[in-house]
Design a protein around this nucleic acid. Structure first.
Lengths: 206, 206
DNA sequence: ATCAAAAGTTTTAGTCTCTAAAATTTTCGT
DNA sequence: ACGAAAATTTTAGAGACTAAAACTTTTGAT
């Protein structure tokens, strides 16, 4: 990257700087208490410049979230590599890793901002970034299912991509519910997700 | 209700008036173009008074949405009474009725506001109202499944409540995706939902 | 009917997100 | 070094929302 001109280097480093400052601010003072003005002051720039780098306050937050994604992906891959014994356990583990990772990073209240913005801004940068994130996770779910097929625990005739999308979605809505309700804990959701899969098994095995 | 004092009657009628005005404004000018200030002016009250009746602009919108619910419920009941031939068709119809009803009432963009607020305000009035709405729909899904069990198309051993919750959730996330993306049409989602159910059938019937 | 308390409304003043545009500064290619 | 291009800052403003003080209306007791 030595070929980058001053301008480009400045742009990249300024972006990093904003992200860095926002991260600590969000963590120490919380999302709502952190104003864009404050972040700008910390970074010695004007508030408008922050908007020049990020679409919105929520967009800044999402950029931070997507940074943490590499770790999440690694954790999921490790789980998949351990070859879970059955689909129900596998999907449940998948969800659990997601939830725990989410909670290690942000509070539920802050996650609500992320999810809420992800719906509202399907077209913006934010929306696109979020969709990419989801797609990576769906890819992982897919890989997991293909492995089940290779081990012949799932018939090869099943459309693995369709199933991956569907199972991820099911897990995802339970994640939404987990985030939406402060009183719902990890085990609560784990039970519910397992119950979902068990009832589906019950109807369709008939 | 003749027993209500002046105060209570005024309160109710003012609430109705705000709702009425907001409804026409939202429909003619759109949600974002309609400011609280404008609604207040139309209703001959101050903007702060609007906030006295509704938590937020999105809350006002939700109050409007929940008004339209009676019609939706009737449509779903009619569909259920027609005794659909199989689960897949039934769930697909359920979703289709929801989407069409939604589109007959508000634009996708406006629905995004509703959904986004529903996540962000789990605790507020808004959140509670929205949960109630969902619960009514889950109840209907449940009734439908019980009917399937009565017709012995689904084994009586299946936990009908768990299944209803799960199938509603699955349908619901596809509804979210429908709303989130302007380019996704009704048939698109219908196909996807059917594919979801078919792949689940394929895995679990093995 | 009168009057004080209760309830509801308005005014005011302010914070915060976000946008647009004009003015200014910085970097870049020549 | 100089003009063009790009980024940044200033300024000005809209709009959602909040808190509190000032005011008006309704109510219930006398």
């Amino acid at each position: 990257m030595a070929s980058m001109g001053l301008r480009e280097r400045q742009k990249a480093s300024r972006r990093e700087r904003i992200l860095e400052i926002a991260k600590t601010r969000f963590q120490t003072d919380g999302y709502t208490a952190t104003t864009i003005e404050l972040i700008a002051k910390d970074a010695d720039i004007s508030a408008v410049t922050v908007y020049n780098y990020f679409d919105s306050k929520a967009g800044l937050l999402l950029a931070l979230v997507s940074e943490s994604d590499q770790l999440l992906i690694r954790q999921l891959k490790t789980m998949i590599a351990r070859k879970p014994a059955n689909l129900v356990d596998a999907v449940a583990s998948f969800g659990q890793i997601l939830r725990r990772h989410a909670m290690s990073y942000l509070t539920k209240s802050t996650w609500r901002e992320v999810l809420s913005a992800s719906i509202n801004e399907g077209s913006s940068d934010f929306g696109r970034t979020y969709l990419e994130l989801d797609n990576v996770l769906i890819e992982l779910m897919h890989a997991m299912i293909v492995e089940f097929q290779e081990r012949e625990l799932i018939p090869a005739s099943v459309d693995s991509a369709a199933l991956a999308d569907c199972l991820f979605s099911l897990q995802n809505i339970r994640f939404f519910q987990f985030i939406a309700d402060d009183n719902r804990d990890d085990e609560d959701i784990d039970r519910r997700l397992r119950r979902d899969l068990e009832s589906l098994k019950a109807v369709f095995s008939a």
